[in-house]
Amino acid sequence: MSTLINNLKAHMARHELNARELAKRADVKPSFIYDILSGKSANPSSIKLARVAQALRVNLADLVQPSEANGADGGGAANHNAIHLPYLTVAGKGAQRHVATKFTYTPPFAFNATWLQGVMTTEAQYLRILHIEEDSMHPTLHPNDHVIVDVSRNTPSPPGIFALFDGHGIIIKRLEYTIEDINGRQDRLVQIRSDNPHYTSYEKAASELDIIGRIVWVGRNLH
């Protein structure tokens, strides 16, 4: 039996909920819960699963990680006040692109729940961790920094630093709306800039951008 099935059953039993009651609380169809419990759904929607976790008053990681690693069995006081944020990954292309949650290969980041809820204005289910690998946003962001991406905020108003999907992978850029008059009509454009002066700025129509979310926090090692 999979980790997800075991953890889901344990948390349902703790709250004395059956599949239909949980589905109603999480605003998902009962078949979504039944398919997970029966093993029919091996890769359920991370968005719907986040709703299920919220209905059970646990973190998403508490459902998909082994219980001894995240305290799903009720033990482990060190993890009791922790919120686990998964790494950001993107699956698919074009219209089929969706933000996925990667738990399989990389363990989630654990943050103190009181601190995270105090500094973030968004619920934890919309936050993802992203590892910075290139220098286009230096000196603001450094290679090997870790940032938190708020995937619920994907419009550049106000201006800020965002994660985008360029058709090949995730890039980080500073975005700001601009207005230009083209052929007698106004088209809303977005200026796309790198903080590193070695990279060229450019503009694109807002409708052509695939914005994943806004960068809201950065952490790095001090050497």
Rank of each mutant, 00 (worst) to 15 (best):
residue 146 H to W: 01
residue 23 A to S: 13
residue 5 I to W: 07
residue 110 A to K: 05
residue 169 G to F: 04
residue 17 L to A: 11
residue 66 P to I: 15
residue 196 N to Q: 04
residue 147 V to I: 12
residue 7 N to C: 11
residue 11 H to S: 03
residue 115 W to R: 11
residue 217 W to G: 08
residue 44 P to S: 13
residue 127 L to E: 00
residue 125 Q to V: 06
residue 92 G to T: 05
residue 113 A to P: 04
residue 12 M to Q: 11
residue 199 Y to F: 13
residue 162 F to T: 10
residue 65 Q to K: 14
residue 123 E to K: 09
residue 166 D to V: 01
residue 43 N to E: 14
residue 96 Q to H: 04
residue 146 H to I: 04
residue 12 M to I: 06
residue 150 D to L: 12
residue 129 I to G: 00
residue 27 D to C: 09
residue 72 A to C: 10
residue 150 D to E: 11
residue 29 K to Q: 14
residue 27 D to Y: 11
residue 69 A to Y: 14
residue 178 T to Q: 09
residue 151 V to M: 09
residue 80 H to K: 11
residue 173 K to P: 05
residue 21 E to H: 11
residue 166 D to C: 02
residue 33 I to T: 12
residue 15 H to S: 13
residue 166 D to M: 04
residue 136 S to L: 03
residue 35 D to E: 11
residue 168 H to E: 02
residue 200 T to Y: 02
residue 29 K to A: 15
residue 199 Y to N: 00
residue 8 L to G: 12
residue 175 L to T: 12
residue 93 K to E: 07
residue 8 L to E: 12
residue 105 Y to P: 02
residue 165 F to I: 01
residue 24 K to H: 13
residue 138 H to C: 02
residue 35 D to W: 05
residue 91 A to P: 00
residue 115 W to D: 14
residue 215 I to L: 08
residue 203 E to F: 08
residue 2 S to G: 08
residue 176 E to G: 10
residue 216 V to I: 15
residue 25 R to E: 14
residue 57 R to V: 03
residue 13 A to D: 15
residue 117 Q to V: 01
residue 106 T to W: 07
residue 220 R to F: 05
residue 164 L to P: 10
residue 114 T to I: 14
residue 198 H to D: 07
residue 46 S to R: 05
residue 1 M to Y: 10
residue 192 I to D: 03
residue 27 D to A: 14
residue 222 L to T: 04
residue 218 V to I: 06
residue 77 A to Q: 10
residue 24 K to N: 13
residue 139 P to H: 10
residue 63 L to E: 03
residue 43 N to K: 15
residue 188 R to N: 00
residue 97 R to V: 12
residue 133 E to H: 01
residue 71 G to V: 10
residue 218 V to K: 04
